[in-house]
Design a protein around this nucleic acid. Structure first.
Length: 380
DNA sequence: CCTATTTCGAAAGGCGAACG
DNA sequence: CGTTCGCCTTTCGAAATAGG
């Protein structure tokens, strides 16, 4: 494969974020590393949350069957380069996974604990710790939902994002604030504290290993236990020690915190957000958050079509996510809506949305304009 | 520039399990 | 058996984006 032919953004998400891959050390890794890097991606030395686990098909034997599901064949890289386009990862999954996390959680570790027997899953210290550490890194976003959804996406825990959020609000926040008082200076302090307590093995990625072997039984581990392995020993089965010494192991989980390897291509996303401020108020953040959000979406829908479509919008905030083109509009709308509310029409929007959805489904082409409800809203 | 549509954030209510 | 605690799901309101 000629490095020169590789698109510099081949392994980048739509928002310009480099895709992270993890591959056990070896000749294959040596071979692929430059290619991935050339494509704008990054090959991590440790398994990070969002990292795509690669494995050479020939080495699959070295991985426990149950863990194979988390791996993507290195052929993916080759094919992407060959076709010069980002292919579907699922097509290269070594062993297509089926198990939904929900079902998995049923056999959760807490059989004897007070957890749940039925469908509910109690929070384990690992879950809490993972959430806390994650939140520590994204303090500015705690107020919103995006962060939590991210967490869910990354399978930080096997709970829904709403659940995690709730959990955080209700319990963790307290703990955190307490801890914060103790060591206000740096958030890390807290995180490390947790870790040292053994509660938190490795930030988000983690969950796992810390102190209980069972951890690997938990649902998440389906996908996450595997995440722990480091360069030296990616195999869950093989690793006896949780780690915790290796500074770069799981201590530097986030996508944002994966610098070393390649160009950090500063992501407007997390970086800018984290910088925000210590959480002023949810609103002010919005504008910036929006753009980020958008990018996330792009990230998820890499299809060319979408790309084009969005490009337009992205263009507006290309380099300045938090610029100001929108605020204007926003203000206007705000005013409008304010007026509207004052006058009346509260339900308009909602009703509209609902009826729309309903209508759309039930009478796709009944010719009934969903706008009906909107009319009044138009108060103009 | 205005209107319509989509998405996000937040809150409330409901459901299930454990404990007294 | 009743009460309390905790998690999950659904609903409501607001803002941003896209299209005309």
């Amino acid at each position: 494969m000629a490095k020169s032919n590789i698109s510099p953004v081949l392994f980048m998400t739509v928002d310009g974020e480099p895709m992270s891959f993890f591959l056990r050390p070896g000749p294959v890794k040596l071979k692929l590393q430059p290619l991935i890097t050339a494509g704008g991606g990054m090959l991590c030395n440790v398994q990070q949350p969002g990292a795509i686990l690669l494995i050479d098909p020939e080495e699959r034997a070295s991985v426990a069957e149950m863990h194979l599901a988390s791996y993507i064949s290195t052929q993916y890289i080759r094919d992407c380069i060959e076709k010069n386009e980002q292919l579907n990862l699922e097509d290269y999954r070594v062993n297509p996974v089926v198990g939904p996390k929900k079902s998995a959680r049923l056999n959760n570790t807490k059989e004897n604990c007070s957890g749940l027997l039925g469908g509910r899953l109690a929070y384990t210290p690992e879950d809490d710790a993972a959430i806390l550490s994650y939140v520590n890194k994204h303090k500015t976003e705690v107020g919103g939902n995006r962060l939590w959804q991210e967490m869910e996406k990354q399978r930080l825990t096997s709970h829904s994002w709403q659940s995690m959020k709730y959990r955080y609000k209700v319990r963790l926040a307290k703990k955190q604030s307490e801890a914060a008082e103790v060591g206000k200076t740096e958030e890390e302090t807290e995180a490390s504290e947790e870790e040292s307590k053994g509660i938190l093995p490795g930030i988000e990625t983690t969950k796992g290993e810390t102190d209980e072997p069972e951890t690997c039984n938990s649902p998440q581990d389906e996908g996450h236990c595997l995440d722990l392995p480091t360069d030296s020993d990616p195999l869950p089965a093989g690793r006896a020690e949780p780690h915790s010494d290796d500074p770069q192991t799981e201590v530097s989980p986030q996508k944002e915190s994966m610098p070393e390897n390649v160009l950090p291509t500063q992501l407007p996303d997390s970086s800018s957000q984290s910088k925000q401020m210590q959480k002023p108020s949810p609103r002010p953040e919005q504008s910036q958050r929006r753009s980020t959000r958008r990018q996330l979406q792009l990230d998820e829908s890499p299809s060319p079509e979408h790309y084009n479509k969005r490009l337009r919008s992205s263009a507006s905030f290309t380099e300045q996510p938090s610029s100001s083109p929108h605020p204007l509009k926003k203000t206007k709308q705000a005013i409008n809506s304010a007026l509207h509310t004052t006058v009346n029409q509260t339900p308009s929007k909602k009703a509209r949305g609902r009826s729309l959805a309903a209508m759309a489904e039930s009478q796709q082409e009944n010719g009934q304009a969903p706008v009906s409800e909107t009319a009044p809203a138009g108060l103009l």
